[in-house]
Structures are given as structure tokens and as C-alpha cells.
Design a protein around this nucleic acid. Structure first.
Length: 374
RNA sequence: GCAGAAUUGGUGAAGGGGUUAACACGGUGGAUUGUGGUUCCAUUAUGCAAGGGUUCGAAUCCCUUAUUCUGCC
């Protein structure tokens, strides 16, 4: 097998949610799924074994970061990303579009038809990332799934800005696809268009015409975007995406957003939240988010969640975890990362079961009651 | 016993008569959605050893006491 293959198993009765499998060269994974982010060829603080123990289907890595350091040629010489980082599960690489977008200081001047001009965050050198370059790098990294290089607009962008970025993203998608040449790798297209119905529809239809191996919904969960706009972006895109290809909501996210995404027909999610929050002492629990630094946990010798099956909850108390985070010990970040990722992965396992049982709406309502009440 | 110097929050300290006592660390909350991992934001001394005085106004000047340090007999 060369490309990934999506296998639809079931549509949930009351929603647009679907159950599926993605077959890859590194194993078959179940969807809907959550993918932890390992920007620099590592999920920060975690080993590949720990990631596998959490039952993660896929992990992300990042084109921009690996391009700058250590360089895609090093990864290629190592035998590709899987060998380089000793991870034998499926890997998805983001195109670098999001990073470069946030590094481009002057959007009008720095984002050109050719690509995006920006300064390296490492040494300030002036660089240009183009659709072709992003795909070439990803071909060399040899991830299982590569992403098209898109123009990621700010949440505050107006209609005209979004219209232009949709059209440019289509041109960039084609340019990337034309140079794409790794037969073992799959390529996803990205739908843009903000919260506008006609733009999302146009973007989805035109992207699908190019026949990608999967489709992403991009431009969501950016700085200050409302949840309503995020849900609109999904609702306006999904009807035009083919049933036999996976759908990926980029950068999401919070437990509630994952549930809402699944209900709307999303198969794949990724987010930095579980690991970033972990490093700062924030923890997902069924009863809402908690900050382990809080004084009230100083003498709390219970696990975060007695019903959680993660390594952290099985072996450590809140008082100890609080101590580690307060003392800035890296083991604390690791233990909380394990819990937070496992929490989101377990959430998707629950959602898959709810799809099997045709009771997704009930599951959502129950989850929200617990999560928001405390 | 005499003389001199010092005493500012949990910590290190700035300020040498002008109103809300700088800054840093620490403490306590909060933020974080295709990761520029140790970040950001808010808050934290109604009070400057204690008491009294001068002054429109005192952490800043004066007096007494306490404590600490340094010299001398």
C-alpha cells in the first residue's frame, strides 16, 4: 500500500458524525481521532512508547520547524521522519503555512503570490516559503500525510481578504500538487473561507476538484475566533466534501469543540492544547479544567481522576503533581502531558462508541453537564 | 561604659522632606485551539524597628527606646 485509504464504517443516525478507519503504511487507525502535536519531531517531553501507550493514532510534525532545524536533508539521510524520531506509527506534517503566517509581520507586503516572506525565529534571517518548497520539504521528510501550503487568514479578516485568500490557496494547492512526488505519501487540500457560506462552498468544491487524499478545514480557532464562527466554517464546508475521504479540522482543540466537530462530520483533530496546557499546569478533567498550581491541591493526595486509565492517574497524586509544576520540574510537564493527551484520546474513543450506539447527542449533553458544572 | 553606622513586604532591595513606596524574586489567581516549550496578564507593604516631635506635607529632619554591627576604654 502506498497512499492512505479511508474506510467509512458507519454514519451516526442523528448527526453527521461518522465512524471510520484510515489505513496507512504504519498501521490502521480509527476515526474520529485526536492527534497530538510533535512540532520538532517530538511530542514535547514524551517518548514514542508513551505516545503509543496512550493509543494515539497519528502524531503531527511541522515542516517549518524541521526545515530550519535540523533541515529536511538531515531527516532524509536519517531514513525519513519515522526512523529519525523512532516512531513507527503514522505521522502527519503540517505545511508550515500557519507558522509563516504568524511570522509575516506585514501581511499585505510579506504574503505575495509567490509565497510568504518572513524572518526566521532562530536567527532573524530573511526567508521565503512557497507552496513548492513546502511540498518538497514534506516529500523529503517522508511523513504519511502532507498538507498543502495554504494562506491562513487572521480571524479578523474581512470578506474581500478571505475571498482573495481562498483563491490564492487554490492556486497554491495546485502548484504544490504539481511538484508532489513521494509515492508513499498522501496529500491533503485545505478549505478556507472564514465563516462565509459562499466562500466555504466555493473553496470546498474547487479543492475537491483537484482530488486530494483528504480534506482539511483551515483558518479556524485563530486568535479570538468565536465558536459560532468555527462551527459555521465546518457546517458550510462539510456538505461539499466526499464521503470516502477523511476530513481534518486543523488546530482544534478543546473537548467541547472536538465533540461539536465530530457531530458535524469531522474525522481528525490536532491541537497543541493538551501539551501546552500541561507545561503550565492546566489539566483536563471530566469536571472541567483545573490548574494544579492552585493552593487547594497542596495537600490533595488523590489522583487527578480516579477513573482515568492514564499512567499519571494510576501512580501520582495531585499534591505531587502540584509540587513538580510549582518547582518547574520537567517530569511534571511530562506527567500532565500524558494525562491531557490521554484525556482527549479517550474522549474520541467515547465518541466512537457513542456513534456505534447512535447516542452522540445524549453523550454530548451529558459531557457538557459534567464539564461545565464542576 | 563611650562613640559611630544601620533597621523599608515573604526575600533581595530602591528611594535622603512633596502626594498612588521603584524594581526583582517569591506568593495567589487567570490566560493558552494547524506550538517561536519554561510565556503572558492581573494581583500581592493603607505602610518604611516602636513611640513621640518639627512641618501645609515625613520612609526621608529631630528626640527617646529597642535590636544589630563596627571601633575605643
Amino acid at each position: 500500500m502506498k497512499k492512505i485509504k479511508y474506510e467509512l464504517l458507519k454514519n451516526e443516525k442523528n448527526t453527521k458524525a461518522r465512524l471510520g478507519l484510515i489505513h496507512t503504511n504504519y498501521g490502521t487507525v480509527e476515526t474520529p481521532m485526536f492527534m497530538p502535536v510533535g512540532t520538532q519531531a517530538t511530542v514535547k517531553t514524551l517518548s514514542p512508547e508513551e505516545i503509543k501507550d496512550m493509543n494515539c493514532g497519528v502524531i503531527l510534525s511541522n515542516t517549518y520547524h524541521l526545515w530550519l532545524r535540523p533541515g529536511e536533508d538531515i531527516v532524509m539521510k536519517a531514513g525519513g521522519l519515522h526512523k529519525f524520531m523512532n516512531y513507527d506509527g503514522p505521522i502527519l506534517t503540517d505545511s508550515g503555512g500557519f507558522q509563516v503566517f504568524s511570522l509575516a509581520k506585514n501581511k499585505k507586503k510579506d504574503i505575495t503570490e509567490e509565497g510568504v516572506h518572513f524572518k526566521s525565529h532562530l536567527d532573524g534571517s530573511k526567508l521565503l516559503l512557497t507552496p513548492e518548497k513546502s511540498i518538497e520539504i514534506q516529500n523529503k521528510l517522508d511523513s504519511d500525510i502532507a498538507m498543502s501550503f495554504d494562506e491562513c487568514p487572521p480571524a479578523s479578516a474581512d470578506y474581500n481578504y478571505l475571498k482573495n485568500s481562498v483563491e490564492r490557496t487554490l492556486r497554491w494547492a495546485k502548484r504544490g500538487k504539481d511538484v508532489f512526488n513521494n509515492p508513499n505519501q498522501s496529500l491533503f487540500g485545505i478549505v478556507q473561507g472564514g465563516a462565509y457560506k459562499d466562500l466555504r462552498k466555493f473553496s470546498a468544491i474547487e479543492t475537491v476538484k483537484m482530488d486530494f487524499d483528504g480534506y482539511s478545514i483551515g483558518g479556524v480557532a485563530n486568535d479570538g475566533e468565536s465558536k459560532e464562527d468555527m462551527y459555521k466554517a465546518i457546517d458550510y464546508s462539510i456538505p461539499y466534501l466526499p464521503e470516502d475521504k477523511p476530513r481534518y479540522l486543523m488546530g482544534v482543540g478543546e473537548p467541547i469543540d472536538i465533540i461539536e466537530g465530530v457531530i458535524r462530520g469531522i474525522d481528525m483533530f490536532d491541537c497543541v492544547l493538551p501539551t501546552r496546557l500541561a507545561r503550565h499546569g492546566n489539566i483536563f478533567t471530566r469536571k472541567g479544567r483545573i490548574n494544579i498550581r492552585n493552593l487547594k491541591f497542596k495537600e490533595d493526595f488523590e489522583p487527578i481522576d480516579g477513573t482515568c486509565d492514564c499512567y499519571t492517574c494510576k501512580h501520582y497524586t495531585k499534591a505531587y503533581l502540584r509540587h513538580l509544576i510549582v518547582a518547574n520540574e520537567s517530569f511534571g510537564a511530562r506527567l500532565l502531558s500524558i494525562h491531557n493527551i490521554r484525556f482527549l484520546v479517550k474522549l474520541t474513543e467515547d465518541l466512537r462508541q457513542a456513534i456505534k450506539d447512535d447516542n452522540l447527542i445524549e453523550y454530548k449533553e451529558q459531557f457538557i453537564r459534567e464539564y461545565e458544572n464542576k
